[in-house]
Amino acid sequence: MKAFELVSPRSVGDAVALLAGKPGAGVLAGGTDLLGLQKDRVQGPSLPLPGVLVNLKRVPALRGIVKEGERIVLGALTTLSQLADDPLLRSRFTAVAEAAAEVGSPQLRNMGTLGGHLCQRPRCAYFRHRQFVCLKKGGDRCHAAEGEHRYYHAIFRGGPCHMVHPSDLAPALQAFDATVRVAGPPGERELPLARFFRHPEEDPLREVALDPGELVTAVLLPEPPPGTCSAFTKARVRQGWQFALASVAVAITLEQGECRQARVILGGVAPTPYRAAGAETVLEGVQPDERVLARAADAAVEAARPLRDNAYKIDLTRGLVRQALGRALGVPPGQVGLAGPWSGDV
């Protein structure tokens, strides 16, 4: 592993100050992604390896899940296990808890943190392979475009870099209109999660809208409207412990059996979490039945533009959308009833 100096601040203020004082320093949370990059020396002309790591693990203020007015505050250092096991998340934000439970393995969930998870780097094998200097490292092209791109590459909005955002949690959080709280030299700011992720068109070097010296301190979730149910589904190459080939988070708010609001967010298929607005339109204002779900699933993938070898992801995503919707609606939290014919085959 590339050597580094480790500094361990005790407060957010100190952490921000340290980062500001050491340009090029990295932020270390659980280390599950960062240390892998450091070991593999993933670097390039525009991607230096940090020589100093600011270790957040000794900042108590970043931990925990608390209520703040109408919002739930998830501290950036909250581990994925804590998110997966939290009773409040499990009951009210089911897709979030389910997504957290689908990340990696038990050990990784005990180590990985929410902040690190949202800021993790892409899993494109060209990005991770030292032999390829791709756009993300300051190179001049995306090797995946013509290369091997069956698994961790985009079918929506790809290019100039065809990465997909690897996070499982991001689609689920976005389905609940989450906000990210960021601390930096000028102070704190908040921005919607949907705007936190950057498309490579804007900046191929970074996936998130953090300025130098900035940290994620928390993710905030507004109370979902009553009658909201949600689910998360994910497909991997094998059954166990892997990044998503595609994932789907849905949050559906029902009022007297009718869908008042729908959120269908796709993961693993685009450079940022992808909002399937077409599917939401199909769902909103109608009583969801099997046919509606099928139409929503079709609408979700309408805009797909696959690469040479990953068109199967369209069918996969369509299937996952239908299954996620079915699961969310089939097991509605509370007493929301369902109208319409159901075969139960969801």
């Binding site: 599950t32 892998g36 050990q107 005990n110 180590m111």
Partner: peptide
């Protein structure tokens, strides 16, 4: 050595973690 096999699993304060992705200093 990359959090991909579990052979290095130890318990840290009672929780299973991959010791290959845990810094000794942590």
């Amino acid at each position: 050595d990359h959090g991909e096999c579990g052979a290095c699993t130890v318990l840290l304060d009672g929780l299973p973690v991959y010791s290959c992705l845990t810094l000794a200093h942590d």
